[in-house]
C-alpha cells in the first residue's frame, strides 16, 4: 500500500510539473513564432523516445555527490526520481499537445481574429478545441512513467520505505524468485493505471462511460 502510494506520488508530481510546463510549451511550439522551430521539433520527438535508463544515468550524474548538484543531496530520494520522470514525461506532453493543437482547423485563427478576439482568447479557444489531444498527451505521459523502472531504480536506489516503488519492487521480488508476489504487484500497477485512466475518461465524459 505504502509502495503504491509512493508510486502514485512520484508519478503524479512529475506529471503535474510536466503538464504545467509541457502544455504551454506545446502550444507555443504550435502557435508561436519559434526560432529554430524544426530543431525544437526534432528535439521534442527525440525526447518522446528517450530511453529511461539513459535519463536515469544523466540524473544520477547530475545529483551524484561529485556531480554539479551533489550538494543538494537529492540522490536516492523521491526528488531525484521526480526529476527523472519529469524529463521523461515532458516531451510526451509537449509533443502530443503540439500536434493536437496543430490539427485544429487552421481557418479558426483568422476567423477568431476577425471576430475581434484578443491573442489570449484565440490561444484559449484553440486549446479548448484540442483538449482531447492534450488529455491524450497527459495520459501518454502518465502511462510512460508509472510503468518505468530503469530511471527510478538508478536514481532512487530502491530503498525500502524511502524510494521503493511498484516497478522497482517488482524487479526486487523477481530477483528473489518471488514470482507470485511480483505478479501481484504487477496486477496492482496495472489496476492503478486503469483506475487513473478511467477517472480521467469519466471526468471527460461527464461521469458517463458511453460518450
Amino acid at each position: 500500500m505504502e509502495i503504491t502510494l509512493r508510486s502514485l506520488h512520484v508519478t503524479l508530481v512529475a506529471l503535474l510539473v510536466s503538464t504545467l510546463i509541457g502544455v504551454p510549451l506545446g502550444a507555443w511550439l504550435a502557435l508561436g513564432r519559434v526560432p529554430l522551430r524544426r530543431l525544437a521539433l526534432a528535439l521534442i520527438y527525440t525526447g518522446m523516445g528517450l530511453p529511461p535508463v539513459v535519463v536515469g544515468l544523466f540524473v544520477y550524474i547530475l545529483f551524484s555527490r561529485s556531480g554539479p548538484f551533489g550538494s543538494l543531496a537529492w540522490l536516492f530520494s523521491l526528488r531525484a526520481m521526480i526529476v527523472a520522470q519529469t524529463i521523461l514525461a515532458l516531451p510526451m506532453v509537449a509533443g502530443i499537445t503540439m500536434s493536437s493543437i496543430q490539427s485544429v482547423d487552421p481557418a479558426l485563427r483568422p476567423q477568431l481574429r476577425a471576430l475581434g478576439a484578443t491573442r489570449w482568447q484565440v490561444v484559449r479557444t484553440i486549446a479548448v478545441e484540442a483538449r482531447f489531444g492534450i488529455l491524450l498527451g497527459v495520459m501518454a505521459g502518465f502511462g510512460a512513467i508509472i510503468s518505468e523502472v530503469g530511471a527510478v531504480m538508478l536514481v532512487g536506489g530502491n530503498i525500502e520505505g524511502r524510494t521503493r516503488v511498484l516497478t522497482t519492487a517488482i524487479v526486487l521480488e523477481t530477483r528473489r524468485g518471488h514470482f507470485a508476489l511480483a505478479l501481484a504487484l504487477g496486477a496492482i500497477l496495472l489496476s492503478l493505471s486503469f483506475l487513473t485512466n478511467s477517472l480521467i475518461m469519466l471526468g471527460q465524459g461527464g461521469g458517463r462511460w458511453r460518450r
Binding site: S7, H9, T163
Partner: peptide, 11 residues
C-alpha cells in the same frame, strides 16, 4: 497528488 503526498510526505 495530494492523496499520495500524504503517504510520501514523511520521506
Amino acid at each position: 497528488g495530494a492523496l499520495s503526498a500524504c503517504g510520501g510526505a514523511s520521506e
